[in-house]
Amino acid sequence: MSNPILRTESLSLVYGKGTPFEKQAVKNVSIEINRGEVIGVIGHTGSGKSTLMQMLNGLIKPTSGKVFLDGKDIHADKKSLRNVRFRVGLVFQYPENQLFEETVRRDIAFGPHNMGLPEEAIEKRVKSAAAFAGLKPELLDRSPFDLSGGEKRRAAIAGVIAMDPEVLILDEPTAGLDPMGREDLLSQIDAYHKSRNNTVLLVSHSMEDIAGIADRVLVMNHGECVMLDTTQNVFSKAAELEKIGLRIPQITKITSELRAKGVPLSEGILTVSEAFEEIRAILKKEGRL
């Protein structure tokens, strides 16, 4: 696509330049992210992925290189930087730790309020954001500190969704949730993306989560972007990923090992149901089912 929503140009970040603690957190990252895509971002803790995400909405200023949002350099005009944060919404890790208002409603309204929207518009946004995040309407008038862990997480995510960002970045949104909470939240994010058709970047340690939702996967290692390709292509490169200490989803691993043994399965199978269908088809063809 010719007009990416986000583009970076040899983005680099060095901490503590000139001191003995000098550390290159992000190294020469040039990527393009297209409108409407869901990008999975994977990499070790300390691989620079969280730092990169904070550079995409201008929270961290690069030591060199540029970030373009919709073709415009986000650091070109200092005054518009705040506006960039409304357009590129960032949900931090453990976002429930940022809740502070008396009611959930007011907390979700914090972002839209900062945008200077009129009251009616804010109210509308709060309601729809809460719905997108899967937060029951009756919780809106409760104190955020009375909610359960999972509900707090949803309230915090709704606080960013309420800004109606063109790009939504979620940094490990499912960390610490149980399998049920994880599954629900991911399908909520998927539904949100499908209905708004905006761009979503999802940082996660769970390859199974990424496999289920991402169009493309960005792999970070030691501050560098080592891969940015379709989910199937990235997870087909098991050996390369394992070299940098990352896994592939168990189901992908199983099917690719079977494939190596001569079972005619497709490359880069990402979900259990895909694998199931293919294996069933094989067995049916052989007349064994």
């Binding site: 399998p179 599954e183 989803p249 189901i251 199983i254 259990v272 089912l289």
Partner: peptide
């Protein structure tokens, strides 16, 4: 009860439900 099962187990349990 919406508890997780390893993908390996889940796949084979689906197949065994079809008669494998």
């Amino acid at each position: 009860h919406r508890l997780d099962v390893p993908q390996a187990t889940e796949l084979c349990s689906m197949l065994s439900a079809c008669g494998v």
